[in-house]
Design a binder for these strands. Structure first.
Lengths: 131, 131
DNA sequence: TCCGCTGTACGACTTCGATCGTACAGGATG
DNA sequence: CATCCTGTACGATCGAAGTCGTACAGCGGA
């Protein structure tokens, strides 16, 4: 499946560095920057699994978006969909529909603008044990 | 009720400034600094009422501890006790038993050491409406 | 001493969210 | 076209947490 990621990457040209090269699918419904609420963001980040997801996105590739399979989490797929939706609805991540798959990226700019320092805490976080 | 708050202040001499003048009651059971977990702290802070409590403590008097009546929240007393306990068990606040009342203060030093910047976000937070 | 006031303890109710099983969509491969 | 595989949609279940009513503890004032 990492090979798949590479394949799809080819489909979305490597030109993309975040300046939104116009060819991207529309993001799924998400709160606007001004509508981000600290309590919602904190609630979304209060789950260890979601904390792990966001941290991995931040540390290993904040520049690109990824499918939920990329994370290598051993949970049922339906559980993962649930958590990714929770993150998006809280405004932590942005999701785009690439064909039949849905990729996520952290809304770094928006979050740093509204809650400076918060993502640093997430990046510094360490999982409870060998999750 | 605000008058009551003034009364209680008089009861606890203004000498106390935080350097722990030895005469303080032992804090109620709380997690040690090293045991503070980001996910627990975020969960505790994901509730608007608790966010309001912590913010009020930070902005209006981080030097003193306060009884739950001091906050002027129009909720049943049992609800307030519940939230104060949640904050303490997550490690956000420290509670001491003064006779029959239980006063709270934010663990500013501990939180800044473990999660720098987090309390700034709480202090900058604004309630949803006229709570 | 009796009454009132403030705050905690306990327990019940209810809502929300985490978890997962199953069914379905749709490209990839042969 | 049939099959496989990845990922989403939907719905059920279960446990945790928010909410609150009531009872109780104990100081202060008349």
């Amino acid at each position: 499946m990492p090979s798949t990621a590479r394949t799809v990457r080819a489909q979305a040209p490597a030109v993309k560095v975040l300046p939104e090269p116009e060819g991207l699918p529309e993001p799924l419904p998400e709160p606007a920057v001004g509508d981000l609420r600290l309590e919602n963001v904190l609630a979304a980040l209060s789950d260890p699994l979601r904390l792990l997801i966001v941290r991995k996105l931040l540390l290993e590739s904040e520049q690109f978006d990824h499918t939920c399979g990329w994370f290598g989490l051993d949970r049922p797929k339906s559980s993962l969909t649930h958590h990714f939706k929770a993150l998006r609805e809280a405004g932590v991540t942005r999701q785009r529909q690439y064909g039949l798959e849905r990729r996520s990226q952290v809304r770094v700019t928006d979050l740093n603008a509204r809650f400076p320092g918060l993502l640093d805490l997430v990046a510094a976080w360490t999982p409870p044990d060998g999750t």
